[in-house]
Design a binder for these strands. Structure first.
Lengths: 229, 229
DNA sequence: ATTCAACATTGTTTTTAAACAATATTTTGT
DNA sequence: ACAAAATATTGTTTAAAAACAATGTTGAAT
């Protein structure tokens, strides 16, 4: 992990909500003291149980947000792509992270101290509402995950994950940044069964698999499998 | 369900956040146009998929908040007791409920139109922060539920639920308002196995069971079962 | 180019918990 | 008080998915 402090938001292509909020109240974004951090693949961006000291915004790359559960088993809640908050879920209630985040590739994030953020949303209502909206979105995703994990069979769960990945990568053809084990963790399925189901889907002509490259050939059927559970 | 409109907050014992927020900005709580609704056991207070039009606050009684999943199977997320919000989770993001709420006994709730609430938190920051806190608390509960459902065996899950219930009812001895089936839904366990495990815990001298009356005799052991999964 | 480690695959066994089935008990409505 | 419905209980069977085991493949490091 490498850090560069006091980023000048003018040079940042990503005009995030925090920046916008700062501008809206005629405050110089320099006051936000934004800090970039660069992570390599598999580095922790935040670790379950540690203190939430900064708001974290993903600039580029990608990351997985996951719960470190019992017996060293992880559950990946969802993936993070540019332009999303990392710290949100533990933002308002708990002073420590309820989950961990790891970079899935070379990833840049921008941090703003939580106290700075607080003073910002005290001055700017709209900003707080935006935070809430993003927060609500995460929750909706998580509720959906509960149904999936609890009520669908592994076939339906893997189908879910594949559809989710295609949405994340914005195409029916994509190269996922996940290992088979991680695909399993995203789906609540053992590594072995994740492999087996990919093969099965391939044999059924629903997808093409070549390593981590996936091509969804029959989205309709895959959706059906997901819906039926 | 029976309704009484234009409640006078002065007569309400429960001085809720909404009331306090209203007072803080020197606004007459009459403007909130609070409405009470009285529900009998098993009546829907809100139904998954319908519009979120009001903020709902539980005055007395109790309710279960649950997802109506696939194949008519429910997952109870948690129980609601007086002085908690009902609508929160779907508040900021979606215009419709992501879950349902049903009264578990005779229950009184107070509703305030969402537009009224919005204008209130636009005037009062602290109030919005309080909403956020409550929101965050719900999320923490739900994350915990994911681990439980996904990584613990049914023994640990039922142990979890019993500990949770004792916390809700504020005692090691309590009469739960849940049927065996509902205890299963709270724990992600079939009705039959819920029964079986209660019997098992009873035989192991960890709890006493008489109908819906539960007495936790060995909290230490029960906690251990919960932790080990 | 070779070795080691991480990742992926496939078959087999075992465990877990749901589903099914039958019956008992309690509650509710008339 | 009685029938009917809802709830609870217990034993048995079946299905699902993890765990185990063995082997293959790929890729990075030297």
């Amino acid at each position: 992990m490498r850090i560069s402090k006091n980023i000048d938001c003018k040079n940042c292509e990503l005009k995030c909500d925090i920046y916008t909020a700062s501008i809206e109240i005629d405050e110089d974004p320099v006051k936000l003291k934004p800090t970039y951090a660069y992570y390599s693949k598999n580095e922790y961006i935040s670790k379950q149980g540690t203190n939430v000291s900064h708001a974290i915004f993903l600039i580029n790359g990608s990351a997985k947000i996951f719960i470190e559960g019992l017996n060293n088993k992880n559950i990946i809640l969802y993936l993070m792509t540019p332009n999303t908050y990392i710290g949100l879920l533990s933002f308002f209630e708990t002073p420590y992270y309820l989950y961990s985040v790891k970079a899935m590739e070379d990833t840049t994030i921008c941090m703003v101290e939580i106290e700075v953020l607080k003073s910002l949303y005290l001055k700017n209502h709209d900003f707080l509402l935006k935070l809430n909206k993003a927060f609500g979105k995460s929750v909706a995703q998580i509720l959906n995950k509960i149904i999936t994990l609890n009520q669908k069979h592994i076939r339906g769960r893997i189908a879910d994950s594949l559809l989710y990945l295609s949405q994340i990568y914005g195409s029916d053809y994509f190269e996922m940044k996940l290992s088979r084990k991680e695909l399993g963790e995203l789906s609540g399925v053992s590594e072995e069964n994740a492999v087996r189901l990919l093969t099965e889907f391939k044999n059924d002509n629903i997808i093409d698999v070549k390593g981590r490259k996936i091509n969804i050939k029959d989205r309709h059927l895959l959706t059906q499998i997901s819906n039926l559970g």
